[in-house]
Design a protein around this nucleic acid. Structure first.
Length: 759
DNA sequence: GTTCAGTTCTTTTTT
DNA sequence: AGAACTGAAC
């Protein structure tokens, strides 16, 4: 029996149809990943296609990794020469080779949304526009959607005749773009758009990639935008062996420019395309699927399909409404504790990141271990961005933003006035900021500050020299930067608790650098920075530990869990106020699709919850039950909707927060044991968040009174494996331990984070 | 010229 | 509840 016999007839057809355009409409849980992986395997094994000629585009890097792994298992060899990556990573890879023909250099920097905002502020200032009228966010929004539609600054300008504001925005776009170029930087949207431009202006480069990627697969096709559509069309233009997989009911990224028409009109764009529908759901119970179908039924303009399942009926979907959000969170966490399920089988989903806080608090209170996806992105934390800005300055001398970020961090006594003098000097002579720093002596009116600036550049130059050496690793560089610039020292003086959490984050970045070095034969600083710039939060989700997952509905796309809790089912929150009051009916439909995505994440058990009262932006808000819940008929729902309130609005002072761990010094020692039955897997751990991307203040890592290992002992580390303790230094707040690991080499680490075990 | 403390305004969702 | 901005003290 071949591996293809395990597929159902529709799946099999999708796998075997290898030539020409193919649209696979894959409902939630219908085994689309299986189809994709088997298809790749089939191409290689049965059709003799060279793995080198296959391009598979996924939505997240994590999905890419999983796909590669699964193909590897099916095929056994050759899987590493398949390109499996996201749109953004693929484009970076291409641009790193060819971007010079667009006037950038190949060591360009990628700006994340914070960088974009900073840059936009510069632009608005330079153009002397009132930031109250021309808001950075709004400007970036316009630019982003333009780029997603492949509209250049010049085209935008040409199209904005007449309207005064529109003309101003055109100027902003133009200036923003020229600033990016000056900084040798690209924003996220540029990555796609520049690649399209590259292909359009260089037919020979396009031809190379067309020949290279004879077979193209695109996952989550419903969430592609116009630029991505164009990119795919260009690449597939020659051989037309394009297979796209998606579900119009799961299109949830319109705000990011996703164009649902791409999937709805696929057959028009690719005449002769074969369409295959996968309608059997293998994931969810009958009850869950019923609820999902009822909700999505209320949307117009969708491809006709009905999901069905042969799975057992399972318990009814639960709905519970609570007095306030605290009770809601408490009930969810208690329910997880009372169930016999493993923590890792449970997920709590919510519409906005802000909702995670209460859930986190309750998890801590009840000692339920959790991992939070998203929130404040790890790479957006101040200390991480500071370190990265140093690395970027060292790697790319043209990145003004990064140089400006760190010139006075730690404080070197270079203030706003000095900086604006330097900036004026730079723009007058056409220097980049860093070059201007190097010429500080020539800047008029700097005085003593000039020496301070030169001190900074001397340090940077020193680091630049060092990274030329083969033996000098990225993690060495990070550690030296922290040490020699005095960054750590300044952090230390900011207070114990702050210091520890920030240090913990930095440690994680160093770990990341170490594992990067392990994965690459010739680790390159630019490559490292790029990898770090493109990671999504889900990419960082480590699912090997037994923890409850907390994340937004958007992050949950593509995942599945036996037990799912859908929280905050309130009108005004989900669907959001924005979508309800929008003129465009499509907006609520997108929210409904999001709800559909949420429901269909559940395999066996689904509980939806709502709070009557909730704090939003510091104000108490009262809400009705979400319309999406109302759309599910009563007989499909086991619910306890509260009676309408009669009188007496309870103030939220009855929410007792004295029990919360904030500010209480000894969270760690509180209640280590005491788990309900069935929770043995975790009995030895406290409810600490995954080392990232949680939030930190509550966790003070205390210096141990003594260590249970000494110099010369053999110890093991969770990541680096086994090794021998070389040196233990008492660093005041913590012990600094040097260990020689067999595999990972010599590492210096802080005892409280390293969690070394004596062997 | 720099830093700190009190003020206002703000947020959906993310590669 | 939190970040970003503005005005006063060092």
């Amino acid at each position: 029996m071949s591996i293809y016999d395990t597929l159902n007839p529709m799946q099999k057809e999708a796998v075997l149809h290898t030539e020409g355009p193919l649209l696979v409409l894959a409902g939630a849980g219908s085994g689309k990943t299986r189809v994709l992986t088997h298809r790749i395997a089939y191409l290689i094994e049965e059709k003799g296609v060279n793995p080198w000629n296959i391009l598979a585009i996924t939505f997240t890097n994590k999905a890419a990794g999983e796909m590669r792994e699964r193909v590897d298992r099916l095929v056994g060899f050759g899987a590493d020469s398949i390109w499996v990556s996201t749109f953004h990573s693929s484009c970076v890879r291409i641009l790193r080779r060819h971007i010079e023909s667009l006037g950038y250099t190949t060591n360009f920097t990628i700006y994340d949304s914070d960088d974009q905002k900073t840059l936009m502020r510069h632009v608005l200032k330079k153009l002397e526009l009132d930031p109250k009228v021309y808001k950075d966010r709004a400007m970036l929004g316009v630019i982003s959607s333009s780029k997603n539609e492949l509209i250049t600054a010049a085209e935008f300008e040409a199209g904005s005749t007449g309207d005064f504001r529109q003309k101003k925005v055109a100027q902003v776009y133009k200036e923003y773009q020229s600033q990016l170029k000056k900084n040798n930087a690209l924003d996220f949207d540029d990555l796609i758009m520049k690649t399209v431009q590259l292909f359009e202006s260089n037919p020979e480069i396009l031809n190379y990639y067309q020949e290279r990627f004879k077979y193209i697969l695109v996952d989550e096709y419903q969430d592609t935008n116009t630029a991505q559509f164009k990119l795919v069309s260009l690449l597939a233009g020659k051989y037309r062996n394009l297979c796209v997989v998606g579900d119009d009911d799961q299109s949830i990224y319109k705000f990011r420019g996703a164009n649902i028409e791409n999937i709805l009109n696929f057959e028009k764009a690719y005449p002769g395309a074969v369409v295959i529908k996968l309608e059997q759901n293998y994931r969810s119970s009958q009850s869950i699927l019923n609820a999902a179908n009822e909700v999505i039924r209320h949307n117009r303009g969708r491809k006709d399909k009905t999901l069905w399942t042969a799975n057992e009926e399972g318990p009814l979907v639960l709905f519970k409404q609570f007095e306030n959000a605290g009770e809601e969170a408490d009930a969810i966490v208690r329910d997880i504790l009372n169930s016999a399920a493993d923590y890792q089988d449970c997920a709590v989903l919510y519409r906005t990141n802000a909702q995670s806080r209460l859930i986190e608090e309750k998890c801590l209170q009840h000692n339920v271990p959790y991992r939070m996806v998203g929130g404040v992105n790890f790479y957006q934390r101040k200390e991480i961005k500071d370190v990265l800005a140093y690395l970027k300055t060292i790697a790319n001398g043209r990145d003004d933003l990064s140089a400006l970020r760190v010139i006075n961090v730690p404080k070197r006594g270079i203030g706003a006035t000095s900086l604006s003098r330097i900036q004026a000097f730079a723009s007058e002579h056409g220097f980049g900021i860093y070059d201007a720093f190097c010429r500080a002596k020539a800047v008029p009116g700097l005085g003593k500050a000039a020496d301070k600036v030169l001190g900074f550049t001397a340090q940077i130059e020193d680091f630049r020299d060092r990274i030329q050496e083969e033996a000098y690793s990225i993690h060495d560089l990070i550690e030296d930067v922290l040490d020699e610039t005095g960054y750590l020292k300044e952090l230390e003086s900011e207070g114990e608790i702050e210091y520890q959490t920030r240090l913990e984050n930095i440690e994680e970045l160093i770990n990341k650098a170490v594992s990067f070095e392990g994965d690459h034969e010739h680790p390159d600083l630019n490559e490292f920075l790029e990898e770090v710039a493109l990671v999504a939060d889900v990419d960082r989700m480590d699912d090997s530990e037994n923890r409850v997952t907390l994340m937004t509905l958007h992050s949950a796309k593509g995942l599945e869990f036996p037990r799912v809790y859908l929280s905050g089912m309130e009108d005004g929150l989900f669907p959001s106020m924005m979508s309800i009051s929008s003129d465009d009916k499509e907006d609520v439909e997108e929210e409904r699709r999001l709800c559909y995505v949420g429901i269909t994440r559940a395999q066996k058990f689904l509980m939806m919850t709502a709070a009557r009262q909730r704090m939003v932006n510091g104000e108490t808000r009262y809400s009705k039950v979400s319309r999406f819940v109302e759309e599910i008929p009563d007989h499909l729902l086991d619910s306890n909707k509260l009676e309408p309130r009669l009188s007496s609005v309870r103030s939220n002072t009855d929410f007792d927060d004295s029990a919360l761990p904030w500010g209480k010094p000894s969270v760690r020692s509180a209640g280590v044991s005491s788990f309900g039955p069935g929770k043995n897997a975790y009995a030895s751990k406290t409810a600490q968040p995954a080392s990232s991307p949680g939030f930190g203040k509550a966790f003070t890592v205390e210096k141990a009174a003594s260590l249970d290992y000494k110099e010369g002992d053999r110890v093991s580390h969770i990541k680096f494996g086994e090794g021998q303790v070389m040196e233990i230094k008492d660093g005041g707040r913590d012990y600094e331990v040097t260990v020689h690991f067999e595999k990972a080499g010599v590492k210096k680490m802080f005892a409280s984070f390293a969690k070394l075990k004596l062997l």
